[in-house]
């Protein structure tokens, strides 16, 4: 699964640490999600989407092998 968190973050001009603080997770978690090393829970995915004011599927998209 790929995601566009880095792009959304760039649009809002916020750092991983800022985003982590707002969402209530560690900076490593945001980093791991961005690098596709960790698939977030549904709750976290919705929190991220709400923060960026977009739909969850606009941020997270399935790849062919998923």
């Amino acid at each position: 699964m790929k995601n566009s968190i880095k792009v959304e973050r760039a649009k809002k001009d916020i750092t991983q640490a800022d985003l982590a603080k707002v969402i209530g997770v560690s900076r490593q978690t945001i980093n791991a999600i961005e690098k596709n090393k960790y698939v977030p829970s549904t709750v976290l995915a919705i929190k991220l989407a709400q923060h960026f004011e977009v739909a969850v599927m606009d941020i997270f998209t399935l790849e062919e092998n998923d």
């Binding site: 560690s26 978690t29 960790y38 829970s41």
Partner: peptide, 9 residues
């Protein structure tokens, strides 16, 4: 003591 879903994983 750290509550974070990825750290827990």
């Amino acid at each position: 003591r750290v509550e974070d879903e990825m750290i827990a994983t």
